[in-house]
Amino acid sequence: MNDSRKPEAGLAGLDVDVLLLAAEWQDQGHGVAVATVVSTWGSAPRPVGSHLIVRDDGLFQGSVSGGCIEGAVAVEAEEIINSGKARMLEFGVSNSDAWGVGLACGGKIRVFVQPLEK
């Protein structure tokens, strides 16, 4: 017996296509950061495991919130690409974080942002 899945079928994690694009950007010589939703409370728009990828020139792809905090994550990601150090970001209505960004839906999320190793 063998698995009939086609070789290109790959894996079914959330946003696998976004991760593949991150690898492509890196191959092109870009610094890249990968942001991942690691936990959510209340009505968060994107499930745990969702990815946003950010390139050193500011271009981003994917989503961690449906649009509410992508800008703030992208700004932070540039610093993370430069420093090479991963960071945890938290966003939510009750959270007066440095960027003053909240989620309109009232939810709260934690986003882990890592630089892709070169």
Binding site: A9, L11, A12, G13, L14, V38, G49, R110, F112
Partner: peptide, 24 residues
């Protein structure tokens, strides 16, 4: 369960991100 989550381990928090085979 096909569910990614943060778990508490003695050395600190660990995020388990699940990548299952494609649905068929």
């Amino acid at each position: 369960e096909n569910r990614s989550s943060v778990i508490a381990a003695p050395g600190g928090e660990i995020f388990l991100n699940v990548f299952n085979p494609a649905l068929r």
